[in-house]
Nucleic acid binder design. Sequence first.
DNA 1: CTAATTTACTTGACTTTATCAACTAAATCG
DNA 2: CGATTTAGTTGATAAAGTCAAGTAAATTAG
Lengths: 159, 159
Amino acid sequence: MMVAADGTGSMAAEIARFRRFNRVYTRYLGTLREGMHSSEFPLAEARVLYEMATREAPRSAEIAVALDMDAGYLSRILKKFEEKGLVRRKASKRDARVAELALTAKGRAAFRKLDDGAEEQARATLGGLGAGARVELLHAMQLIERIVAPDPEPKAYVL
Amino acid sequence: MMVAADGTGSMAAEIARFRRFNRVYTRYLGTLREGMHSSEFPLAEARVLYEMATREAPRSAEIAVALDMDAGYLSRILKKFEEKGLVRRKASKRDARVAELALTAKGRAAFRKLDDGAEEQARATLGGLGAGARVELLHAMQLIERIVAPDPEPKAYVL
DNA sequence: CTAATTTACTTGACTTTATCAACTAAATCG
DNA sequence: CGATTTAGTTGATAAAGTCAAGTAAATTAG
């Protein structure tokens, strides 16, 4: 029986490669040592800031969905941000249940700093690459993104 | 001035794409909700199990390096595993400082379960794809892996 | 050979993160 | 109106993760 004599690879081999990528990439992202090399904000907070900064009129529920994050947890983060003067919350006139969120100037500044850091880091990685490799890399990322982005399922097993 | 009228993209655009991939992928991996949909082991523990299961004679320091994980934290995880009967630790005859680690039968069983889950999950993702897309995806992953794997730097800013 | 250093890992002492259920309060539906 | 649903907050913990100090064995230097 002839299986995968071409470049296709057996299903088992494909699965192994897929999984290896996840391991390598989580390692690359530092998933296992949150905060260890303490950047100013832990990832969750940074991402909340990001969502706030890139939305017109951010609302808690939106952010929670976007980040797949517990609402209570998010609420506390937002409270903390408010105490630090990064975020303003005020009840919507329309619907008094919803809090209209906004970054303060200070919040925007904090975000900008993070954003610059991320930009810098990305630049450093891409910069060491050569135009060809860069194009390939970006192409690869876009491809993966298209496959993976629409999947809302929690991936419990990055192993 | 003509910039990137081909498919190349400006540097800024490339950076944006690179960063978006990281955001999408961390979301996909569920980085922001560790344990939320409680799988049997939190990611850190699962990965430790993985390292143990895939090494000949695992040692604590090796695993800590492989996973970029705090040694103290790892020590506790190992202790917990030992208490649960998943791991055996005994001092090396050679060097009494180093603990020779080994999975017990129970530990191997626990790993197998996780491993099967991961396999299953990977299979589900790949299975919904069609041979062509699958080949492309794996190819893309391999490419990214090659670029990213050798980089030991902690990526603080996935933003 | 002994004393200082280094290596390998463990422990104490916390701080942060994260979860989940219970709880207000406002809006909507029947 | 009363019953639900929706939005977000809180209490109560649990779990994760960090960092420094500590123990003990091995290595190195004098």
